[in-house]
Each structure stands twice: as C-alpha cells, then as structure tokens.
Amino acid sequence: MNRIGFIRHGVTPWNQEGRFQGHSDTPLAPEGILQAELLAARLRDESELESWDLIYSSDLSRAAMTARIVADAIGLTEIHYDERLREVSGGLLDGTTENERVMKWGEDWYDDSETLGLEGEEESARRGLQCIEELVSKYPGRRILLVSHGTFLSYVLNQLLPKDLSRPHLNNTSLTTLVGVTGAWECEMYNCTKHLVNI
C-alpha cells in the first residue's frame, strides 16, 4: 500500500503580489521559509510514528527550497527532482497580476488563455499522473512526499479523487495525503495546515 504526501511549496513574493508564477523560477519569501520550517518540524515530530521514505520535488526554486528544508528535518539525504512536477505553465501570463492581464488582453483574457500559452488542466494532470504511476511502480508500498505547486496539484488531485468543485485551493505548505487501496486512491487528509496555526 503506497502513501503519497502532496505538499504545496511555501509562499513567494509573487504569491504575495498576486502574480501568476507558472514556470518562472521564483524563490521563497521569508514567510515561505518560516512556513516550510514549521511544516518540517511537524513532519519530524510525526515521523516518530510513521516516517517518509522518499521525497520528490519540482525543480523550480520555490518547491526545491521547501523540499530541502523538509528533507533535512526528517533525515532524507537525497531529493529527487522531476520537471513533470512543475507548476502549470502560464506562457505569456507568467509574472502578471490580474490587473495587468486585464490591461493587456481585456477582461475576457481567459477566453484566449490557450493562445497566450496557458497549459491546460488535462495536459498538466497527464504529466503528474505519469510521474505518480512511475513512482508507485518503482517503489511499491513506500511512503513518498511530493513537493509541488498549487494549481498543478489541484489538477492532479482532481484526477485521483472524485471531482469536487467545492474543494478549496491548496494553501502554501499544506499537506494532503492519499493512500492507494485496491487500485484506487483514498484521501486521508486534505489541505492540512495545522502547523501554521500560530503565524
């Protein structure tokens, strides 16, 4: 039985400014580093009961920095980086705020998002599911952490779980855990940020 923990990276300056990040390589903000440290401390404490065996991460800095902080805390010396875990590519949208998008392309800019280079949900989820299927096949029965990005993870989880339009967007450094049961996935925990209650 595989267990996968999905972690969204810590907050970045562009998150704080409301900018679309996509494949832009933005680092964590000081608050994001603190969030990652608090998550790492939580996982270190919880590892006395059940430890994580492996950690995979998007190669973009904000996820990689989060993964490094977590890995150091829980005693994992190796982080595996995989480009398939990158955020949804925004194309020309990368780096823009909503106001800037409206100014450049009008209020209906999303209608032309494909032309502007925005990667679709199906395409994003496909690469994520391919990565997960490979990991489950390669490491049967292992506990694997995946550090990635909010929109990308939402798209992947929409494929692994029954689609639920009321499901909230993942918060920074949230932990979502799924367990593989008889060819399907069951959600143990979704978007949990109990480590952030005091900040």
Rank of each mutant, 00 (worst) to 15 (best):
Ala125Asn: 07
Met103His: 12
His9Thr: 05
Met103Gly: 11
Leu49Tyr: 14
Leu196Gln: 09
Phe152Tyr: 12
His149Ala: 07
Asp108Leu: 04
Pro140Ile: 06
Glu17Met: 15
His23Asn: 06
Glu31Tyr: 05
Lys104Cys: 09
Ala67Phe: 00
Tyr139Asn: 13
Ser148Val: 07
Tyr81Pro: 11
Gly32Tyr: 01
Arg143Thr: 10
Ser61Ala: 15
Val136Trp: 12
Leu175Glu: 08
Asn99Ser: 13
Thr12Met: 12
Gly128Trp: 02
Tyr139Thr: 12
Glu83Gly: 15
Thr193Glu: 03
Glu17Asn: 09
Ile199Ala: 10
Met1Val: 09
Thr96Arg: 02
Gly75Ala: 07
Glu31Ala: 14
Met189Lys: 14
Asp72Gln: 14
Phe20Cys: 03
Ser24Gly: 07
Thr66Ala: 11
Gln16Trp: 05
Trp52Val: 07
Leu34Ile: 12
Tyr155Asn: 07
Leu93Ile: 04
Leu39Pro: 04
Lys104Gly: 02
Leu178Asp: 00
Leu196Gly: 06
Leu165Gly: 06
Gly32Pro: 06
Arg101Met: 08
Glu46Thr: 10
Ile55Tyr: 01
Thr12Ile: 07
Ala71Gln: 02
Ser51Arg: 12
Arg167Val: 01
Gly22Lys: 03
Asn2Trp: 00
Arg143Lys: 15
Glu133Phe: 05
Leu54Met: 08
Asn99Glu: 09
Thr96Ile: 08
Asn2Lys: 09
Glu31Ser: 06
Leu54Asn: 03
Arg8Trp: 01
Thr12Gly: 09
Ile199Asp: 06
Gly91Gln: 01
Asp72His: 14
Arg62His: 00
Arg19Pro: 01
Gly10Val: 09
Ile33Lys: 09
Ile69Glu: 04
Thr182Asn: 15
Glu121Arg: 12
Met1Ala: 13
Tyr155Pro: 00
Leu118Ser: 00
Glu50Pro: 14
Thr176Gly: 06
Ile199His: 05
Arg3Trp: 14
Asp108Asn: 10
Asn99Met: 12
Ile33Ser: 08
Asn2Ile: 05
Leu165Cys: 10
Lys163Asp: 13
Ala41Arg: 14
Asn15Gly: 11
Asn172Met: 08
Ile132Tyr: 07
Arg84Trp: 00
Glu87Ala: 06
Glu78Phe: 01
Arg19Thr: 02
Leu43Tyr: 01
Asn191Met: 09
Gly90Trp: 01
